[in-house]
Amino acid sequence: MESTVLIFGYSEYAVQIAKQVRSLHHVRIFVHTDGEAQRALEDGFEVERFDFSDRWHDDAQHYDAFQNVLYCALEGREENLFLTLSLRDAFVRSTIVALAGNHEDVHKLKMAGADKVFPIVQMTADLIVDLIEKPIVTDVLHKILYEKSDLQIAQITITKGSWLCGKRTHDLLWEGDLEVIIIAIVDLELHSTFVFTAKGLNHHIDEGDILVVIGYHGQIEAFRASIGGA
């Protein structure tokens, strides 16, 4: 079943999020002004009006699911905080992503129940610095991450009985001849923390670990099939 993305607000950030996710997900835009509603309709989105006094429980019955993502992208920071808090109360299973203007808001939005907060200013500053200091790396990673190229990044969960279970990262990175590159592992035994393979630790791969790999689409799918990954 196609997952649903609910976007709250129709700021320029919200517009861009909606444009990026519409090809992969069912998108619904929730707005609270006529102007926003009109612009979203003109852009061809399904639009619903909301009020800050809404209780959201009816919507949650329809849309609250683990694979669904809610984006809180209102222009007012206080409104965004209030909305995040209200949505968390109703949408228990969905992932809530909120946009924050600054570092102070990041903390508050997390307290309000957001699963992921994008600090806009920090991310922009990081990107600018990367662009001017490491233009090639930034360009390559940008293509891998965001452009619809054949070179992709993917996450693969190790299933029970995979030939990778029991292997060590050093064997895979520098001794083996994998066509994909494993850049990180999320280890369930280590409380789902990242283990960057480039950190040099000879990590023991277990069932349930999630591999973050980079490779061409065909190579990634072949690798996924060979290890029986999900």
Binding site: V21, T95, V97, A154, V212
Partner: peptide, 27 residues
């Protein structure tokens, strides 16, 4: 650099591959 577009791309990436996103972001 159009920040809004960048945030849109990042948010979309997070929606699809949250673990991969976190890995690159942490990097």
């Amino acid at each position: 650099l159009y920040v809004q577009e960048m945030i849109g791309l990042v948010a979309a990436e997070f929606g699809g591959k949250p673990v991969a996103f976190e890995a690159i972001h942490a990097l």
